[in-house]
Design a protein around this nucleic acid. Sequence first.
RNA 1: GGAGAGGUGACAGAGUGGUCGAAUGUGCAUGAUUGGAAAUCAUGUGUACUCGAAAGGGUACCGAGGGUUCGAAUCCCUCCCUCUCCGCCA
Length: 423
Amino acid sequence: MLDPRLIRESPELVRAAIAKKHLKVDLDAALGADTAWRAQLHEVEQLRSVQKAANAAMAALAKGSPEFSAKVAEMKAVSSRVKEREAGLKAAEEKCREAMLALPNLPHSSVPDGATPEQNIVYSAHGDTSAVGPNAVPHWDVPGFARLFDFERGAKVTGAGFPFFVGEGARIVRALINFFLEEAARAGYVEVSPPILVNAASATATGQLPDKEGQMYETTPDRLFAIPTGEVPLTNFYREEILEAAALPVYRCAYTPCFRREAGSYGKDVRGLNRVHQFDKVELLKWVDPATSYDELERLRADAEALLQKLEIPYRVLLMCGGELGFAQSKKYDLEVWAAGQRRWLEVSSCSNFEAFQARRAQIRFRSRDTGRAELVHTLNGSGLAVPRVLAAIIENNLEADGRVRIPAALVPYFGKSHLSFA
RNA sequence: GGAGAGGUGACAGAGUGGUCGAAUGUGCAUGAUUGGAAAUCAUGUGUACUCGAAAGGGUACCGAGGGUUCGAAUCCCUCCCUCUCCGCCA
């Protein structure tokens, strides 16, 4: 949610910023709803003020006295008017809230213009992507792949995109999760194991609701949502709380499975481990003082990058253009690994600053040292990292002539041996 | 899942229809006292919206939502959560 004051006072500034995101947004509807709501609020408050004054006067009168009865008769009329106007006020408030929730976050001034993936800026590139081994193939074509990553049985048991990870396949997943968690801890992130079902209020705070229900799995009859990312429970940890300034910044990390319906995906994007409905991810999350949030974003990106460097996977960093930003993001870097067999880049991390957008929805504040008042924190998050695509890249980049996959040195202690075998 | 008891400010805890945004205590802040501290005393100490240049007003919030009433923390209904006992269970 945006600062309502900003929308009222500088609507053209907001309009221009939203245009950079290439989203169709009815700002005037929000402005109109806000004005209407405030006018009605003022009216109701004045009526209530009359009621309160009368109540004070009546408290001093004898219950049965004629003066008392006269007041009751008089206030009945006011009461019914209050009821009527309150109903209108409630409707106006709801309408205003809906309109406000529909407004996206504004991009930061350093975000490049653009509407398409081609307009993202390659911020940096690391490692060699030119040397393609003679046996580099898409990971799903590696002989024996289906033994370790059993999509067929997963489809039988659950549905498409819910693979079983078997034997060394399961072991490499566990090794990656542990590696990511240990590295995060070393970088100062406190580990959390959160619920992986969340309620509607939590999904609203991080921006999945309203509008994006279709991308989440939803349970009945309790209406809980399977998290699409650890960001959701993690961010909501401090929902409706006021933190002490001294407690900031807070760094947390969490391993969770993530669930995505991915309605509308198709083709080569969804082959193999590229896109699945359930996958493992370690999420990094920060709650920070607003003054520091863009420095924190750079550090967050560096933390995520360090993982890829240690795994010796060629990767690049994209600075996302306005049109490629998510609804709630102010600025985002994507980390993409090189999948040598597919000869394409796979996104394995998104590091974003949400500024106060989520914090306002979630009412996460801190007690400012300067003003003594409760102010909204800034939230940031990034993957550190998503398991299946990192795994795909390791398989495709490290496939050796004998059909085995060389495990990066940093991962060997976690995996327990130097090679993964499909035999 | 069943039965019962509860949910009040940072915390404890009073308040069962009117002058209650809410006693009292603790904590915290500032000041007095002190060489300094403790103790003591005094004052202050929530969030949000809104009007105002400011000073200062107004309104809402006693788990959430709805209802009754001229008036609700207080009465009624629904839901959520916590605790105790029972059942079930990794």
